[in-house]
């Protein structure tokens, strides 16, 4: 039987408190009526109301969502293909270079990823804006997608695929009707991660953006560089609320589908 000591409980409670207290404080301050964030003036939803009229912030949030939707989807397709190629196709010419290019961006500092992509966009003389940020985020996220899908592909029984091939199914057919349904949970998880990465990114987007494509993190960053602002507290609280709900629902869903054993057929 496992024994949980007082010390163990103490470490967990303190650790969780450390992780959550700053966010709780941020949310509480967002309801502060006073413009001076640190001076408590009473509860109010004033900053949320002001937010509704702040077109710049709303525009930036909308841009961020669009970038995240497009880049997460593109990264999921590219990353899944790369994972299948690495795990299932055996040796092919240039596999080593391919594998290195998958893993290298995972450890590349964001500043360098952003810098190098900007230099590329300057060299080929494209106008920077929405699509350059999408390309940058797709490149950044697809490697994470590959790693997640790869671990799922390694886990499951390859004989299922071999059976389909023996029965005469061509490779594409085998992939679509056997492999894809089996790795679907991993693909969904990878898409969510790619979406979150894109929504979160400040550095790469700052390098690759152009006029008319200000994302929410860039907007927040330029607002808070010189200090805290109550409106930003409200934006952040809404963001935290949405993310918290999404992750809770996703983990509940994962639990439900996981309890049923094999994932449902589409």
């Amino acid at each position: 039987m496992r024994k949980v000591s007082i010390f163990n409980i103490f470490a967990i409670v303190l650790g969780i408190a450390f992780l959550y207290l700053p966010i709780v404080i941020l949310v509480i301050y967002s309801f502060n009526v006073s413009r001076l964030v640190a001076v408590w003036g009473g509860w109010s939803t004033r900053w949320y109301a002001e937010l509704a009229g702040d077109n710049e912030i709303l525009q930036a949030a909308f841009t961020s969502l669009r970038v995240a939707l497009v880049s997460a989807s593109a990264a999921t397709v590219l990353g899944t293909l790369a994972a299948v190629a690495l795990v299932r196709f055996g040796r092919f010419r240039g596999r080593l270079l391919f594998a290195s290019m998958i893993y290298a961006p995972l450890v590349m500092p964001e500043v360098i990823t952003g810098l190098s992509l900007l230099l590329l966009f300057v060299a080929v003389e494209v106008d920077r804006g929405f699509w350059t940020v999408v390309i940058a985020h797709t490149t950044m996220a697809m490697c994470f997608v590959t790693v997640i899908v790869q671990s799922r592909l390694v886990d499951f029984d390859i004989s299922l695929e071999e059976a389909a091939m023996d029965l005469g199914a061509p490779p594409l057919r085998t992939f679509l009707s056997i492999t894809l349904p089996l790795i679907l949970p991993a693909i969904v998880a990878a898409w969510m991660l790619a979406f979150a990465l894109s929504l979160d990114d400040l550095v790469v987007a700052s390098f690759t953006t152009g006029p008319g494509a200000t994302t929410l993190p860039i907007r927040i960053y330029s607002a808070v560089r010189l200090g805290v602002k109550p409106e930003i507290n409200a934006v952040c609280s809404i963001f935290v609320g949405i993310v918290g709900m999404t992750v809770l629902i996703a983990s509940l869903l994962a639990k439900l589908t996981g309890a049923r054993g094999t994932p449902a057929r589409p």
Binding site: I23, L26, V37, A38, L199, I220, V224, N233, C236, V240
Partner: peptide, 18 residues
């Protein structure tokens, strides 16, 4: 999963002078 930037910003709130 909550934004990196927001978590740093939360600490700007906590660590300010008042």
């Amino acid at each position: 999963w909550t934004s990196f930037l927001i978590r740093i910003y939360a600490w700007m709130n906590i660590l300010q002078r008042d």
